[in-house]
Design a protein around this nucleic acid. Structure first.
Lengths: 241, 241
DNA sequence: CGATCCTATTTCCTATAGGAAATTTACTAT
DNA sequence: ATAGTAAATTTCCTATAGGAAATAGGATCG
């Protein structure tokens, strides 16, 4: 009558259960939905059917609704009264330009703060991570991994800035989703990897000005790459309905 | 499909719609709870009893829980698994500093953009509004009106920046709410009005540098005022549990 | 053929019920 | 008297039920 698969999982990990108290189902559902949304498993702009989501997850609609209420406050979904929620839509080229402008205000400062705040361990971890990703391959899974790599790299820096307001505002923007949807055939990851490495190096050296400048360069060149792709006509601008 | 005349007709009857078409209960509950939280009708740190709140509001626990889930994502309450929620503590000095730092990254740029974008009508409207508010009286209602005045002024500028990301990120931060909660007992010397007027003037003159500088001054003096209040011991620092 | 209205089904939203965890109360033993 | 424990009560959390709105399907009319 309740969630059988979860119960099986609980029996399997019964020892672990004794140590860590089971967290409410809502938190699990929320984590799953956020993950699906961030990974494009929930299509932006699409309507969410609460009952079917609940069935698919093996839970009742109640925790699903609660998770969606959280996600609404996070700006990840948009409530349409009496019509459930839709996944927050992605954007067109003009809005993307505004997004880059916005990030140019914030992320260079975040990188500078990270250069001042990061411990040696954190700095080397960042450098290691920067070198780890960005295969640049063209198949779908590599592309998705590259997107996660990019998002994670920027989030690590935001975290190192020690400013939760800053970090939250970037997470909410979901820049990586917007960028990769509009422009995933260009060799974004391959091109960005050396730029990430440069940013990480400046942070590891504790040089805030160089870190900020490297971040600025990274963002402006990303915007220029996108402009080039659009100018070449490879991508058509999608009308947001 | 959306004929402009039809849309106008809909707007005309929008007031009538609001009477009949009632918005979901969750939204009402959320609004009430946020208001109670701002006015310290919900005391910071106190545990929330979902059932009794539902009884007091004359609704069932379900919409109350949903509203609380939203408020959790907004940082207004803190979830304690299996123990409901507690009201989030008042913002501490360190978080407040981070919030001002964050705004210093964004709002001067917003003011500069507004100086470039604002039409003459919009500029004079902004100036009129800047001069309209900020009574500075000490009673509770005046204090609240001053808060709304301040929040509105900053939001108008964010809107005039023509960058929705920028505006959204400021709205989501809800700085005015946090400040109002801190200064609920009416002690804020509302010296902000002349600073607002100065910002509005620079924007009206179409001078982006002056506008940015005036905004920077406004924010840094606000931070200094806060430091003074904390230093005077009127407000206690929040101990992180 | 297209538009409007009416019916049927789906889906949302709120209330209620019940199991499980947490808290309080009461009791026992040292 | 106090510490520890067990029972009783409260409270949370999830599932389910049912009324109300919205969508889909179909028929009638222009």
């Amino acid at each position: 009558m309740e969630h059988p698969d979860l119960i099986d999982a609980m029996n399997a990990t019964q020892a672990a259960q004794r140590l860590t108290a089971r967290q409410p189902l809502v938190d699990d559902v929320h984590a799953v939905l956020v993950d699906m949304l961030m990974n494009h498993a929930l299509e932006p702009g699409s309507r969410l059917n609460i009952d079917s989501m609940a069935r698919n997850l093996g839970v009742s609609p109640t925790p699903v609704r609660e998770a969606l209420a959280r996600m609404e406050a996070q700006g990840l979904v948009v409530k349409e009264p009496r019509r459930s929620y839709i996944v927050a839509p992605l954007i067109g080229l003009e809005d993307l330009r505004a997004l880059i402008d916005f990030r140019l205000l914030i992320e260079p400062a975040a990188a500078a703060a990270a250069a001042l705040n990061a411990s040696p361990d954190e700095a080397t971890a960042l450098q290691t991570f920067a070198r780890s990703g960005g295969s640049g391959d063209q198949d779908a899974t590599s592309n998705r991994l590259d997107m996660v790599y990019d998002a994670t790299f920027h989030d690590i820096i935001a975290k190192l800035s020690n400013n939760s307001w800053l970090r939250e505002s970037l997470l909410r923007a979901r820049s990586h989703l917007h960028m990769y949807r509009l422009y995933h055939h260009a060799k974004q990851a391959a091109a960005t990897k050396p730029e990430h490495v440069a940013i990480a190096r400046a942070i590891a050296q504790g040089d805030p000005d160089a870190a900020a400048e490297a971040m600025r360069t990274h963002l402006t060149t990303a915007m220029r790459r996108i402009d080039d792709v659009f100018a070449s006509g490879e991508l058509k601008l999608q009308k947001p309905r």
